[in-house]
Write a protein that binds this DNA or RNA. Structure first.
Lengths: 233, 233
DNA sequence: CTAATTTTGTGCTCTAAAACATAATTATAG
DNA sequence: CTATAATTATGTTTTAGAGCACAAAATTAG
């Protein structure tokens, strides 16, 4: 892959949510201040406890937001796809990060200093409303997720994770192979189970012809039934 | 208890977070539009699936935000104390409620139409920032909670819930009896466990002299150890 | 290419917590 | 005040899922 520089035009097209509400002067300010950073596969983007300074926009690649809990277990809280914004919550709440972020795949991230963003928010109400909306959506997802992760059984949680991955990252040309190739461990951390249970349950799903597996390639065969399994828990 | 009408002065003092950023004209608009509603113990305030129309401010009483999940189980997502705002997330996200709310105790709630609030947000940036901050804080709590509820063991979750209740609602004059008297079922729904496990674990805690129980009165005796149990999970 | 390491797959064991059963209390309703 | 229902308490059984062991396969490093 050629690592040429992205042009300003390409970037501003990508970051529309942030860019569009701004006037000329505000855009000039933002254009002057952002930086682009590249992350390798599995590279950590920020850690729990770090002080937040920048809002990040994933331009390309795939990113996980996760949290290490008790007993060496990890929970993937959400996943980011282009062109989504993340890493700003803690700053707004005036906290350190309570989560960490890492790249599933090689990723390109655009960073804007949060002090600029708060300045822009203060003078641009549409931008404020963008964040209100985004945070509200994410909070709803978090509430939903809490209940699903705590109440559903393993099969339900894994089925849900597979459908969620399809929804988030889409499928390949065959219309059914997930476009993201996760390790069994990541899949387990997404669905709140041990790695061996993720492996086992995946095998069972394959035996039941709900999916086919070929290494990390997962193909959803019977989505209706997966949806049912996810629903009933 | 006398159910006299609250005066405007009393109310505006209570709702400072919302009121304070506003100018005279905005305050007049808000004062004209709010309503006060009383809820009996255990009365439902709104249901999952309802369309959100008002932001609510709990003036007095105690409220739970909860979610019914699979298999007849319920998860208490958060609890409200005076003078906190709630029930606005879904409106901002342009969704129906994904949670329900009910009164733990007789409660008085001040309701403001959300269309007025959005109008005020559009013209008052401080108000917008209040919501950004609040949503950011709540999202951090939700992320934290997801991991605690999924990874900690029963003892850890119950200890955490007890400490959380102290922090949220405080204690009586003896400095150690929780000011909220929950049913064992509510306690279980708060800590993601069955009612019998809440009862059992509470008894064990009492036997270990971590707490004393007298009906629904719970007294925290050894907070340090409770904190340790909560921490290690 | 070979060795070392990581990831995946399966089987087996063990345990935390759910599910169930049954009293004993305590509220609530008529 | 009594009857009914709900809540609390405890004991027992069952089971979902964690934990562990080990082998096979796939990556990665040298």
């Amino acid at each position: 892959m050629v690592r040429r520089e992205l042009t300003l035009a390409e970037i501003t097209e990508s970051i529309a949510d942030l860019w569009q509400p701004l006037n000329e002067q505000q855009r000039a300010l933002l254009a002057k201040e952002f930086t682009i950073q590249r992350f390798k596969k599995n590279e950590i983007i920020y850690c729990e406890g770090d002080k937040p300074t920048h809002i990040m926009c994933l331009l390309s690649g795939k990113v996980k937001i996760y949290k290490d809990g008790v007993g060496g277990r990890t929970q993937i809280i959400r996943v980011m796809k282009p062109v989504e914004y993340f890493a700003y919550r803690a700053y707004f709440a005036n906290e350190e990060y309570v989560t960490a972020a890492a790249a599933f795949e090689p990723s390109v991230i655009c960073m804007f200093p949060m002090n600029i963003i708060t300045k822009l928010i203060a003078e641009n109400n549409q931008l404020a409303q963008f964040f209100i909306r985004q945070l509200s959506i994410d909070l709803g997802i978090a509430d939903e997720r809490t209940v699903n992760l705590t109440q559903k059984h393993i099969r339900g949680r894994l089925a849900e994770a597979l459908l969620f991955l399809k929804e988030s990252y889409g499928v390949e040309e065959d219309e059914s192979t997930l476009s993201i190739y996760l390790s069994r461990e990541d899949l387990a951390n997404l669905s709140n189970m041990t790695t061996s249970n993720a492996i086992r349950t995946l095998s069972i799903f394959a035996a039941e012809k709900l999916i086919t597996i070929d290494g990390r390639k997962i193909k959803l065969i019977d989505e209706d039934r997966l949806r049912k399994i996810s629903k009933i828990g």
